[in-house]
C-alpha cells in the first residue's frame, strides 16, 4: 500500500452515501456536533497524560497525607473534625488545579492550530467549550474522589455521610470557576507556559484563601486581603456543609470570581475568533 501511495497521498475515495455533490441529502449534525465519542477521546487523552495524573491524583492525596498529620486533627470542627476540614480543602485544591489544567488546554490547542482545524468541521465553538467543561468536571470529580478515598483509608476524617457527599458535590461545582480561570490564563499566556503560572499561582491563592491554613490564624492585615482572593469564597462554600458557617461575603466572593473568570475567558475567546 505504502509503495503505491507515497507521502501525503489519499487514494481515491469510494463514493460514500450520499454522493459527494448530492447537496440536499447532506445533513447537519445535531447539538453543534457535540457527541459522546468526542467526550470519550478527550477524557482518555487526559487520563493518559502523566502530568495531569500527578496533579489530579498524586499531589492532592500526598498533601492530604502530610497536612492531615498535623497535631489536633481530631479536634472538633463543625459537624465533624479537623481532619474532615482538611480533607475537603485538599479535595478542592486538587480539583481546582485539575480543572485549571484542563481549561488551559483550550489555549494550547489554539496555539497548535487545532482550533483552526476544528473550524473546518461542523463542530460549534459552544459544543467544543461544553466538551472541555465536562472533561474538566470529570477530572475534577476524579481528584475529589481520590482525595476522599485516601481520606477514608487514612481513617481520621469524621463527618456525617450526608456532609461527606454534600461537600464533595459542592466542591465539584466550585471547580468550574477554575476551569474558566484555566481558559482565561491559557489565552493570556500562550502555550505550555500557562501551567507554569497556574500551578504556583493556585498554590499561592490557596494559602491566601485559607485552603491550606485556616484563615483565622493569619494576621489581621493578611486576612483582610485574603477575603478578596478567589480561593477564599469557594473554600468557604465547599466547607459549608461541614462548618454550617457561610458568611455573605464568601458567597459574593465565589460568585464574583466565577463571573470574572468566565467573562474574562469569553472576552479573550471572542477576540481570538475575530482574528482567526
Amino acid at each position: 500500500m505504502s509503495a503505491m501511495t507515497p507521502a501525503g497521498t489519499p487514494a481515491a475515495t469510494p463514493a460514500a452515501t450520499p454522493a459527494a455533490n448530492d447537496v440536499p441529502a447532506r445533513r447537519v449534525p445535531p447539538l453543534g456536533a457535540f457527541n459522546v465519542t468526542l467526550l470519550r477521546i478527550e477524557l482518555f487523552r487526559m487520563l493518559r497524560n502523566r502530568r495531569t495524573i500527578v496533579f489530579t491524583l498524586v499531589l492532592p492525596a500526598a498533601l492530604l497525607l502530610t497536612v492531615g498529620n498535623q497535631d489536633g486533627w481530631d479536634d472538633k470542627a463543625g459537624a465533624g473534625n479537623v481532619a474532615a476540614y482538611i480533607l475537603i480543602s485538599m479535595a478542592l485544591y486538587g480539583a481546582a488545579l485539575t480543572a485549571a489544567a484542563t481549561g488551559s488546554m483550550v489555549a494550547m490547542e489554539r496555539a497548535l492550530g487545532w482550533s483552526r482545524q476544528l473550524r473546518l468541521t461542523p463542530l460549534h465553538p459552544i459544543a467544543y467549550i461544553l466538551t472541555k467543561a465536562l472533561v474538566a468536571l470529570c477530572m475534577g470529580a476524579l481528584a475529589i474522589a481520590m482525595v476522599n478515598l485516601v481520606g477514608v483509608l487514612q481513617g481520621r476524617a469524621v463527618m456525617p455521610t450526608g456532609v461527606w457527599v454534600g461537600a464533595a458535590f459542592v466542591t465539584l461545582f466550585c471547580t468550574m470557576t477554575f476551569a474558566a480561570l484555566g481558559v482565561f490564563i491559557g489565552y493570556l499566556v500562550p502555550g505550555e507556559n500557562a501551567m507554569q503560572i497556574l500551578g504556583p499561582g493556585l498554590a499561592l491563592l490557596s494559602f491566601l484563601g485559607g485552603v491550606f491554613i485556616p484563615i483565622d490564624q493569619y494576621a489581621e492585615v493578611v486576612r483582610q486581603v485574603a477575603y478578596w482572593t478567589p480561593m477564599y469564597g469557594v473554600a468557604e462554600v465547599a466547607r459549608s456543609p461541614l462548618t454550617h458557617e457561610l458568611p455573605w461575603f464568601a458567597i459574593v466572593n465565589a460568585v464574583g470570581w466565577f463571573a470574572v473568570f468566565v467573562l474574562g475567558a469569553a472576552w479573550r475567546m471572542s477576540k481570538d475568533t475575530a482574528r482567526v
Binding site: 456536533a33 468526542l38 477521546i41 497548535l112 492550530g113 483552526r116 482545524q117 468541521t121
Partner: peptide
C-alpha cells in the same frame, strides 16, 4: 490547510475518530 494543526498526544486513529464524530455523514 497549511495552518491546520494536529494534537500530538492523540493517536492517528483517535484523531480520525474524533473528526468523524463531528460529521452527520462520514
Amino acid at each position: 490547510m497549511q495552518t491546520g494543526g494536529l494534537i500530538k498526544d492523540l493517536t492517528v486513529r483517535e484523531t480520525v475518530e474524533y473528526t468523524a464524530s463531528l460529521f452527520a455523514d462520514t
